[in-house]
């Protein structure tokens, strides 16, 4: 452009500096501190003492905590998988509806999406408790049975799936909506049966939506502690619960930081393995 280069520098600084500082202060520095704290010790009250020890990491790699990591991973995988299986057909169906009806359905999915997950989790407590709505309905049936669901891992899974289902439906919907119908029709014109048509045409075209949906569900599920606390009675802790507990109850910040660092490294490794672009696309 017709600007002198020094002037250009100032403009770049003007737009870029605030954001850079912000990121350095509130994203990079906290993560660096977590890393630093993870090598420290604590005193009797729980204040952090600067020192260098591998003890926290030794404890992290104790089978007990490896198990917690594996369990959290499993819970996150199951939640993501169920959300995908349940959400995909619905998202696809909504995307293919005529425009006026489609918006109505979309609205219906979005209302829970924008409602606080605490409120929605709270609703499940009412439903699942022993003397709650679900058992009242079951009891009224001719074969009267009752289920003991609240404060079990099953309740946690139901809560997680319920919380994150809209996060799966919406990205898949937005992808399926842009789907070029002529391609699908071309497929069936060429004699593909619906199943192969789905595998070869529809699935690849909605792949970005599925990817985004998986990310939207998997990432928050992995660190979730509130739903587990409320529906699980804190007796099968996930990694989020253990970390939260280390910071706000057991006052072992160094150990909590070590757990956090491992979680951080896991996610960075995950992103390094998958395509970088995916993060950008979100």
């Amino acid at each position: 452009m017709n600007l002198s280069s020094s002037k250009r520098h100032w403009i770049v600084l003007f737009w870029g500096l605030p954001m850079t500082l912000w990121g350095a202060l509130f994203i990079i520095a906290p993560m660096a501190l977590l890393l630093g704290y993870s090598f420290c010790e604590r005193d009797a009250l729980g204040q952090v003492i600067w020192s260098f020890t591998w003890e926290n990491y030794q404890r992290v790699f104790d089978p007990v905590y490896l198990n917690v990591f594996i369990r959290s991973f499993l819970f996150a995988c199951i939640t993501t998988f169920v959300c995908l299986m349940v959400g995909y057909p619905a998202a696809y169906f909504i995307a293919r509806l005529p425009k006026e009806v489609r918006n109505l359905y979309l609205l219906l999915v979005m209302i829970p999406f924008w409602t606080s997950f605490l409120i929605r989790t709270y609703a499940w407590i009412t439903l699942l408790k022993s003397e709650g709505v679900l058992n009242a309905i079951l009891g009224a049936l001719p074969f009267s049975t009752s289920l003991d669901l609240l404060y079990t891992p099953m309740a946690v899974l139901i809560g997680l799936i319920y919380t994150f289902l809209p996060f799966m439906i919406l990205p898949i919907y937005s992808c399926a909506e842009k789907l070029d119908l002529s391609l699908v029709e071309a497929g069936s014109d060429l004699g593909a049966n619906p199943f192969w048509n789905f595998i070869h045409v529809i699935l690849p075209l909605t792949w970005p939506g599925i990817g985004a949906g998986i990310l939207f569900v998997f990432v928050p599920t992995f660190g979730m502690f509130a739903v587990v606390d409320l529906l699980g009675g804190s007796q099968t802790p996930l990694i989020g619960n253990v970390i939260q507990n280390q910071f706000l109850q057991a006052r072992n910040w160094p150990f909590g930081s070590a757990l956090g660092v491992i979680l951080l490294v896991m996610f960075f490794a995950l992103y390094a393995m998958t395509h970088d672009e995916e993060v950008d696309e979100r």
Binding site: V12, G16, G23, V219, G223, F225, I243, G260, D280
Partner: peptide, 30 residues
């Protein structure tokens, strides 16, 4: 503006999106 660190900066600012929220929470608390 094109800038040598641009890609890195963008990744940095996007980090909170890509991680479980609890990590941002404990990081900022610390």
């Amino acid at each position: 503006y094109r800038h040598p660190f641009q890609k890195g900066l963008k990744k940095m600012i996007m980090i909170p999106l890509a991680l479980p929220e609890i990590l941002l929470g404990i990081g900022l608390l610390v």
